[in-house]
Computed example of a mutant assay.
Amino acid sequence: MKAVVLAGGEGRRLRPATFTVPKPLIEVDGTPILHLILRQLQSAGFTQVTLSLGYRAQLIEASFDGPHWAGLDLRFSLEHEPLGTAGPLGLLAPLEDSTLVMNADLLTDIDFADLFRRHKKSEAAATIALVPRHVDLAHGVVELDGENRVAGFREKPRMSFLASSGIYVLEPSVLRLLPRRTRYDMPALLKDAAARGERVEGHVLDAAWHDIGTPEQLAAADAALRADRARYLGAFEQHGPGGGTNSAEEAVRG
């Protein structure tokens, strides 16, 4: 199985930390988030992973210079200018099979292999991994009818919705819609695919999911990983990638 991890962003909301360290190398409980993601993908059976890089690409490449990544076909693609959340895929050689695509700023325990299998079984052209989210509003919500009369009132309600996790499985037919070297975002790509008759599905997953895009979100992810590393790293807490006795801590940190 193949995957692409989009790791080219500047991480502006995490400044000043990202002035020197690119966001994919920001540590969560002492481990760079991108290293965590690659260990999860490797554990799920992905054998080839392409990292789409931009900001401080050399630092990210250098972080993978070590024996702990043996057995993983790790490739690098460089965008010389920001191309959005889908545009970098247009720089890759044409893909020949289903490919998992995800952002590099996520801490999650989503079962990537199961998501991939569900996508293949559905025969969809694109699958979006969705996570339920809830927001408790601090204010009362008033509803009016067509004549401005109060029709309803809810005191500090909880609003629920399905959020895109930033994790997708895409077929080559979808990726062929991408223009070359043009900024393009994933929602636009999926909307274009659906407009052309391609089947775009969403799979709702009951999983932990943390975006580390802001200091507050990073702190929440750090606490979650510290509380239960085995939940996110599974077998790597007990064994290294080759099934030996190295701990995940040693394998991931190098």
Rank of each mutant, 00 (worst) to 15 (best):
P88R: 03
H210Y: 15
L233S: 02
A235M: 08
N246I: 00
Q58E: 15
L162A: 09
Q40N: 04
A7L: 07
K121V: 13
H239E: 04
K2R: 14
I212L: 12
T99M: 01
P241F: 11
T245K: 11
H134Y: 08
A195L: 14
L115Y: 03
G11P: 07
V174S: 02
T85C: 05
V4S: 02
L59G: 13
P187S: 12
G166M: 09
G54M: 07
D145H: 10
M159P: 00
L59M: 14
A7D: 09
H68V: 02
D136T: 10
A163F: 02
L59W: 03
R226Y: 02
D228Q: 10
I110M: 15
Y168N: 02
E249Y: 07
L74Y: 05
R226C: 07
N103P: 00
M186R: 10
E147D: 14
L36M: 11
T214S: 15
V174A: 02
S164A: 13
T20D: 13
T31M: 11
R180P: 01
A93K: 11
E143M: 11
V5E: 02
M1N: 02
E198D: 09
P172E: 03
G45R: 03
L59V: 03
A221P: 12
M186T: 08
L175C: 05
I33Y: 06
L14R: 07
D192G: 00
A129M: 01
R181K: 13
R199T: 14
A207V: 13
Q42H: 05
A193D: 05
R253N: 14
G166D: 09
E237C: 15
A3T: 10
V141G: 04
L36R: 12
H35I: 03
G30R: 09
G30V: 06
R199D: 09
G213N: 15
A251C: 06
G240C: 05
E81I: 01
L59C: 01
L95D: 01
V252A: 15
A188H: 08
E79G: 04
S63A: 15
F116T: 01
G146I: 00
T18L: 05
F76H: 08
A151V: 01
L144N: 08
S63D: 11
S165T: 15
H134R: 15
A208E: 14
E198V: 00
A235N: 08
I37T: 15
Q42M: 09
V174P: 05
S165W: 05
G242V: 05
A221T: 10
W209M: 11
Y184E: 02
W69V: 14
F236I: 06
L107Q: 07
L162I: 05
L100I: 08
G9K: 11
Q42E: 06
V150Y: 06
M159R: 14
R199S: 10
